[in-house]
Design a binder for these strands. Structure first.
Length: 155
DNA sequence: GCCAACGTTGGC
DNA sequence: GCCAACGTTGGC
């Protein structure tokens, strides 16, 4: 059963254009250091699931594309790499704390769906992204919400 | 740059 | 186990 997710990224760190220019338009979603999001990455996100790719902490926060999960949760090896900014001494290869998935670009939206537009859309009222204080960088999205966002993008 | 909301840390 | 202090997120 296909599930739906939203993943946040700061475009200055990794943007939809970076994903597009990645080999096979695929990347590992490393660096998530929040337990709730970790649990989703490790336990719930499966190959074939659909992802809304969201730009946060920028001029125009918006869903800018969609992606497909091409590899389900596996240990985030960046946590073992002392030179990585995602290094975490408490995580080890035999007992990993952090997990990641691989995603592949599905499509870049010609018309990004802005945070503002989503707030104005009655049908999206319940969306996790729009709840006050919601900071989860990986969050579940209902199929209906996913479809609504795509419709707003004219897809 | 500000600041509200949230998560984590660590002293007790 | 409580909770104050601190760090981070992210919209504005």
């Amino acid at each position: 059963m296909t599930k739906y997710w939203l993943m946040k990224t700061e475009p200055t760190t990794f943007s939809i254009d970076d994903l597009e220019s990645s080999p096979d338009q695929t990347t590992c979603w490393e660096g998530v250091r929040n337990y709730q999001a970790r649990n989703l990455l490790r336990d719930d996100i499966q190959e074939g699931d659909q992802v809304l790719f969201y730009h946060s902490a920028c001029k125009e926060p918006a869903v800018v594309g969609t992606a497909t999960v091409v590899r389900s949760g596996y240990p985030d090896s960046h946590a073992f790499d002392r030179r990585s900014k995602y290094f975490d001494a408490k995580s080890s290869a035999d007992k990993p704390t952090w997990y990641m998935v691989d995603i592949q670009l599905q499509q870049k939206l010609d018309t990004p769906v802005t945070l503002k537009a989503m707030r104005d859309r009655a049908g999206l009222k319940g969306m996790a992204l729009l709840q006050k204080g919601s900071r989860l960088s990986v969050q579940p999205v209902k199929k209906k919400e996913f479809d609504t966002v795509l419709k707003m993008a004219g897809v």
